[in-house]
Amino acid sequence: MSASAPAAPVTAAAAASAGSGLAVEIRGLNKWFGEFHVLKNIDLTVGRGERIVVCGPSGSGKSTLIRCINRLEQHQQGSIVVNGVELTDNLKNIDQVRSNVGMVFQHFNLFPHLTVLDNCTLAPIWVRKQSKAQAEATAMKFLERVRIREQAPKYPGQLSGGQQQRVAIARALCMNPSIMLFDEPTSALDPEMVKEVLDTMVDLAREGMTMLCVTHEMGFARAVADRVIFMDQGEIVEQNTPEAFFSNPQNERSRQFLSQILDR
């Protein structure tokens, strides 16, 4: 069955980094929402520095899968090891994994009662115990990098969707994560703002960040992904390099999906 497809890194870059340990290692993962079997026998390993794009029709379990990696969702079967730490009910492990894994959400989820700067410094100060000055210096550095430095004193409600999502990326980066998860980061944006967010993500990918990204932006997948994972009905149906996946999908369901999103 293709769900248990070889988990070895596909690209040379990932293979090289695999020697330094795996970023994420998922074995035999099963998850149910009540009666609904949302993830079925998922095996997935992600090497350091690897960039993975997860796609698939809605309801295929792709968001649930990456939300399991920082335990926003609990799995019922199988194991998930992130940076060598296994995710169990142990709250300490969970907090440790979470503080090393950045996440960017579809709806940004910035804290509306805090300024952009305070959004970015909150976790470094309260979780990493950094001094305020140190946290602010780091925050300004990352806000600069997402080209939004001048908005630092504003509140999220005063920014456009694209700006908010770039702040959300900066906020995650301020924790100096080793892995970044993106859960459909551009789906809630107006079309003219998609590019500014994707550009930021491309920059991040070029700097060697380990990334798992749920997205339908196939241009982005082509540009930076080492591997594209296609999911349907809770299974990993196919995984391949972007070139191979887009030009020559192996599975009937992948072909159907690609024809639908590329026709748009």
Binding site: N70, L72, D95, F105, N109, F111, H113, L122, W126, M175
Partner: peptide, 27 residues
């Protein structure tokens, strides 16, 4: 308070009381 606020706070690694005190209760 939207569920996303809890998730964003959790994803940053904030423990329960800090999440409540800094993010959820103020809102």
């Amino acid at each position: 308070v939207p569920k996303g606020q809890y998730e964003a706070a959790e994803a940053l690694g904030l423990p329960y009381w800090k999440m409540m005190g800094l993010i959820i209760l103020p809102q």
